[in-house]
């Protein structure tokens, strides 16, 4: 593991998240918890006419869980639930250490979390937001 795995992208999204706030217009929300770490977030999505028009999260957790959720929202807002699922697949592939260069490109800033693949203890933190989104889309979001 390198010394600076908490790069600027990650620390910036942790300290100054773009999407960490309440979302009164949300059409669905879901709580995700990592019980061993105490990471606990609520993900809110506003889905209209088959598009994720807005999204936010609240809660608390380590820098990796918080930055990962923030970066995820940055990627999926303005996309369809299907596209969001596609990003989720790519992100899981990246954390599993199986991603191609082109796919990594597609993930944009989320690529900053690539090193988590080498930190087994932190994988759950990085995946928390994404897993929560998956559950949410499988439920209410998927029904749209």
């Amino acid at each position: 593991m390198t010394d600076n795995f908490y790069g600027e992208v990650l620390t910036d999204h942790n300290l100054h998240p773009l999407h960490k706030h309440d979302l009164p217009t949300a059409t669905c929300c879901h709580e995700g918890i990592n019980s061993t770490c105490g990471d606990d977030i609520v993900l809110n999505l506003e889905i209209k006419d088959g598009i994720i028009v807005n999204g936010s999260f609240t809660g608390s957790g380590c820098a990796i869980s918080q930055a990962s959720a923030d970066i995820m929202l940055e990627l999926v807002i303005g996309r369809t639930p299907e596209e969001a699922r596609h990003y989720k697949e790519l992100f899981f592939k990246m954390i599993g250490g199986e991603i191609t260069e082109d796919e990594l490109e597609e993930l944009e800033e989320a690529g900053a979390l690539q090193n988590v693949a080498k930190m087994p203890a932190r994988v759950k933190c990085a995946l928390l937001g994404w897993r929560t989104m998956e559950t949410l889309l499988d439920g209410e979001g998927g029904a749209q």
């Binding site: 957790g61 380590c62 932190r122």
Partner: peptide
Amino acid sequence: DGVHPHDIAAIFDAE
């Protein structure tokens, strides 16, 4: 202040 304990442990682990 402002640093989650899991991040603290990870930074120590890197050293």
